[in-house]
Design a protein around this nucleic acid. Structure first.
Lengths: 199, 199, 199, 199
DNA sequence: TATGAATGAGTATTCATTCAT
DNA sequence: AATGAATGAATACTCATTCAT
């Protein structure tokens, strides 16, 4: 579909130029259509960005939807499940590196309207992780800990690891598995932890 | 000094509008000088941003400079020292919230030239933390762990906690102490860790 | 006929938006046909306007065609005949208010090519009235008077009365009869005239 | 002043091209300034037109301001005074032919916002003339006549005479005096009037 | 005939930067 | 040093027109 071709072209241009330096003329050239065609499908450059952003947030949400980590009963089970979730998430990002790059580099600097949108997304994610955290604390899997701070930490640590290994380094899916494991064990057992079970 | 007044004015404008929406005319109005005066002190709007960015990176660097966490010999000592470093860092950011906001929201979307600059900064920070990590591993304070992944995680988790509590929520310095402690203990002992010493 | 449907739709759109603000897309939407269909019947938006303009000029011309006011012999006869002509004319305009509105509001601002067209139309009308005037002067019905100036005056006074009462106020045909009588008596006897016969 | 130079340039361009065909680039070229300079003095092309329109309406208003035709006591006095007013008015229009052309050709087709503006102006003029008319009727200078219709007629007849002789033919001031006299006598005594006094 | 997606030339407006004073 | 009027390159968006189906 023309609309999708334009979106894909825009993703490539946004990824290499950044939102503000990306000209509509470059996007249409990349898509191989005329300038006017752009406006058949998007009312403005900003609206196009909004759609791309929504698509990405849906992608991320979709990658972890359906999971219910509050059903886990043991540390070991949690460890396994987290690995699954994290891998799926990482995979989604690895397969959409340009989108991921745009999200982490540009999204906050496009327009305040998107900032609110993104803040809501983060709030949802943090809330979701918070639920898991409180469940684990209740089950005695986690020690008593501020579940909100923990949630923020988890999000932040995923973010940077993603930016570094997905956006910048572009690791293989193979390598990403090992990193995911390291990260999960860090969250669960800490750097000074001694009782880390074998994988 | 006029130059500094302009820089301070620019920080306020960048913080509330974002780099791209900030007009030079608004910056000079904020500073109370004429349009032409701007160019007596800065060759361009982008150069001004570069200076502001450098100032911020220096601020951050300065907050942790002088510290040598590779001299620590025990877990407990590390825990104390980390707290010191982290608090100093957090304090610096809390006292420069606008700068911090600009750094995390705008810096990556201004121009590729700054992206490389920022990447180098992150590399340095990660390298620094990596040194500490390897030291701790050698001393047996940390279990064997990928020191680079750990370093990335630490950076990311600091980032998000800062963005959330410093940029968005604007916590008090008092509250920030508690959060810092939580974060450090998470890194050291994990969420599932059981042998966390009393503070 | 499709062509006529498009023309009627265009008249409505021109009347409410004005020529320049009227989009071809709105005209076809109003007519309920596809964009391309427009160009099956009209080579351009401007050509369509030209046709509409010609239709209107024909309408006006038709309303007074066939009349030969140079056959009148007396003031009273002239007065009667003028009333007839004027009423027919007014009626035509009242029944085509949108066209009348377009003519007086837009026609001169569309394109120089139409300006010449319209100027010719006015010249013809003035010439026609001039003939009547000279006839009446010769017959002694009119006093010696500059027949061209009189012709211009008659046209102008019709114009404004039409714009005011037809385009703006939309009077009834009933009311228009009285106004027509007033106007004719003004032209014939003036405001200061004392020997105005009963109607 | 730069603003005035731009306005004068715009008047010339509007007069020869019409509002819609007039490009800002042509206006600034005519004024001999850069494109951006335009926007130092006018927020938009439309606002510029608005100012020009206002200037013209003020010019017209100013030409007849100060006159109080309700103080006249006799027909002959009225006839003299009308001649004065009309000549002043005509003179103002003759000396601003481009403005006059713009007003009669373009003003109604620029934007609805100006249409309302112009309608108000006409209403005021008609009201003003209506006052005179009622005064003359009361004094017995005029026969009983619909003063509103008369007012509309006077305005319309001035309009067309102006368009024809000022905008199109560009008569001399000398010639205009004679025409003014003819027009006034037409209004006062009509074409069929016999008791027209010598001038 | 009819469609409607595609075209691309055209233009008002913005704003970083310059420079005469 | 300071001013602020002037500059002009840059660009998103519109809409009359075309044409393959």
């Amino acid at each position: 579909m023309r609309k999708d071709e334009l979106k894909q072209a825009a993703i490539r241009v946004f990824a290499r130029r950044g939102y503000h330096a990306a000209k509509v003329s470059e996007i249409v050239a990349e898509a191989g259509v005329a300038q006017g065609t752009f406006y058949l499908y998007f009312p403005s450059k900003q609206a196009l960005f909004g759609e791309i952003l929504d698509d990405y947030l849906s992608l991320i949400t979709g990658a972890v939807a359906g999971w219910d980590l509050t059903r886990v009963e043991s540390l070991e089970q949690l460890r396994q499940d987290l690995k699954q979730v994290a891998f799926l998430l990482t995979q989604g990002m690895l397969r959409n590196q340009e989108l991921t790059r745009i999200f982490f580099h540009e999204a906050l600097a496009v327009d305040p309207v998107f900032n609110r949108h993104i803040a809501q997304f983060y709030d949802q994610v943090v809330a979701l992780i918070g639920v898991v955290n409180r469940h684990c604390i209740a089950k005695g899997i986690y020690r008593p800990i501020d579940s909100d701070v923990l949630a923020q930490c988890v999000v932040g640590l995923i973010e940077r690891v993603v930016v570094q290994y997905v956006v910048n380094s572009r690791v293989t899916e193979e390598e990403s598995r090992r990193i995911v494991q390291e990260v999960i064990d860090l969250v669960l057992f800490g750097a000074a932890g001694t009782q880390v079970p074998a994988r």
